[in-house]
């Protein structure tokens, strides 16, 4: 079966999704990432979705699951490059990807992975 390539850069894993993923491919990516996080001390995962022109509830949920699972395994996930039309549609669909850190592009995402994650609990947001 085809696979989405996962690149390693030091302690980070980098994934650029370039194809319109069917559901099994999204799940295979999730499994591959978890295997690689466990295999070598990974502290950050960067998931670039700038090539995706659609994120439906299944792909959105898989992205959320990847972030949640990676966190349990000790790695932070940043999703980069979400297109505005995709963001608008996701929220209207009812999926707000809470708990998933996002950045505009790969450069900003890499920078974010180099910093500690903000506290996740509590409603107060300090800038």
């Amino acid at each position: 079966m085809e696979r989405i390539p996962v690149l390693r850069m030091g302690s980070f894993l980098l994934v650029t999704i370039q194809v319109d993923m069917h559901d099994r491919l999204a799940l295979a990516l999730q499994d591959d990432l978890m295997g690689q996080i466990r295999a070598a001390g990974t502290t950050g995962v960067l998931l670039d979705i700038s090539a995706l022109d659609v994120v439906d509830s299944f792909i959105g949920r898989t992205i959320g699951n990847i972030a949640a699972m990676a966190r349990i395994l000790g790695a932070e996930t940043v999703v980069t490059g979400m297109r505005p039309a995709v963001a608008i549609t996701l929220v209207e669909l009812g999926l707000s990807l809470e708990g998933v850190r996002t950045a505009l592009d790969v450069a900003r995402g890499m920078e974010m992975l180099g910093r500690p994650a903000p506290p996740r609990s509590g409603r107060a947001r300090h800038s």
Binding site: D53, V54, D56, P84, A85, V86, I88, T89, E92
Partner: peptide, 9 residues
């Protein structure tokens, strides 16, 4: 583009 994305989703 936004409408396309909604319909496709």
């Amino acid at each position: 583009l936004v409408d396309q994305t909604k319909i496709v989703t």
